[in-house]
Amino acid sequence: MSDASLPAAALPRGRLARQDGAAARIVLIALALGFLALFLALPLAIVFIEALARGWQAYLGALADDDALAAIRLTLLVAAIAVPLNVVVGVAGAWAIAKHEFRGKSLLVSLVDLPISVSPVIAGLVYVLLFGAQGYFGRVLASYGVEIIFALPGIVLATLFVTFPFIARELIPHMQALGNAEEETALTLGASGWRTFCMVTLPNIKWSLLYGVLLCNARAMGEFGAVAVVSGKIRGLTTTMPLHVEILYNEYMSVAAFAVASLLALLALVTLAAKSFLEWRYADQIAASRRH
């Protein structure tokens, strides 16, 4: 056979009929790798190349800048508020949806997924319409001196909107696959509902929960469009890291912009590594479907 000359690893043993010709295989692998190199590897590499274009001194200097540090602090603060809130809501929602049957369940699931198909800009816009200076509640809030738009609360709200489905989506299919038997057993043994949740449900879903937290956190720290609309981009006060990247880039401070961007790229790489580790190590203990 024509494939006899190929390395043994390339041959699925005992599956001759499934093999593509060597030429087809090489062409397809080249196409796939070429496409991924063009769209993934190259942009990622450019971030680090541009960030280090003037050497490490300039790179570290850009990161030590006061506004950059403020942006990093704000980004961490926003994620620290939005992610735990999402965990509470996501777990509570997944519990109600996956463990119970009720009318309107599929409607609720669709509504939870809704933010995925809403433009981030619209996610920001809706809060401006509610709480902006000319918004529905703008005047009331102003009279009490409460700032939501162009301030931290608006940024958190916009972040909550875009990350809303992340945790529930990861947990619901997993909890449905697990079924109710273990919880029912615990209840018949006399455990309270809360104790059943903590001792039975939570240990079973912990890795999918972590998986959802990872994705949620990456999006929370990296969100641009929704936050851009509500932040007002006041340097050092309401600029998150992605917004700070934009400001620096528009001011032609390329090294500084890519330096901050490189931190976000590193966050993405760490997220990917942790996510792959979870998929590899706990494949059976995270949601069966890897949709997003």
Binding site: F224, E246, A261, L269
Partner: peptide
């Protein structure tokens, strides 16, 4: 692309 912030992808 799920993990990389869009602004970073944009300037890259």
């Amino acid at each position: 692309p799920f993990a990389l912030p869009t602004a970073v992808a944009g300037i890259a």
